[in-house]
């Protein structure tokens, strides 16, 4: 069984990741994305040297759920801090200091605040990692011949094979017809 698992890890995945095409400017990439959406493709991804304002909307990406993760875990931090200060102050070490109550919101609020911030920060960072599927040591796009140019001056659009309308031949023709160059089917 272990052998089978190692074999699975070592065997490269088969099949097609999608069809990639290169564009030479932000505007031509944007136009290509809108044309592809109009054609009915839904599983699209773009690879660009810098973030492009409006690309998320153009691709039809849903807003990130990260904010909800952060507030949920942040409020867990609030609860943790209240429980911690209450337990320490009244159960584990009940000491009267300066005539103050064993537990009061006045002196525990800084701790409550700090733990809320700490939990929120962790949620934001690690939640972002999770949603971006990081760390990732291999990506199918490494197989694309123009991949290294993406960090320089190339704007790449991919119609992924996960798209219900995907057909490698038709996608290749379509991307060429809307002005894409270096149109290639990319292996998984």
């Amino acid at each position: 069984m272990i052998q089978a698992f190692i074999n699975k890890l070592l065997t490269p995945p088969k099949g097609s990741f999608g069809v990639a095409a290169e564009f030479n400017s932000v505007d031509s990439l944007m136009a290509a994305v809108l044309r592809s959406r109009a054609e009915g493709y839904t599983k699209l991804e773009t690879y660009t040297p810098f973030p492009i304002h409006g690309m998320d909307e153009a691709l039809g990406s849903k807003p990130s759920v990260l904010g909800y993760i952060v507030i949920a875990i942040g409020l867990c931090g609030t609860a943790t801090a209240i429980a911690l200060t209450w337990w320490v102050g009244t159960v584990a070490y009940p000491l009267v200091i300066g005539g103050k109550p064993l537990w009061a919101v006045e002196f525990t609020l800084p701790i409550i605040f700090e733990l809320t911030i700490l939990f929120s920060a962790f949620a934001a960072v690690f939640g972002m990692f999770h949603l971006n599927r990081l760390p990732q040591f291999y990506h199918a796009m490494f197989n694309y011949s123009q991949f290294t140019k993406i960090s320089d001056d190339s704007f790449v659009l991919v119609i992924e094979s996960a798209d219900p309308k995907f057909n490698a031949e038709r996608a290749t023709k379509f991307l060429s017809s809307i002005g894409g160059s270096a149109v290639e089917e990319v292996a998984k």
Binding site: V26, E57, A58
Partner: peptide, 8 residues
Amino acid sequence: MAHDHHLD
């Protein structure tokens, strides 16, 4: 839309 705030 995305393209119109780039152009006009």
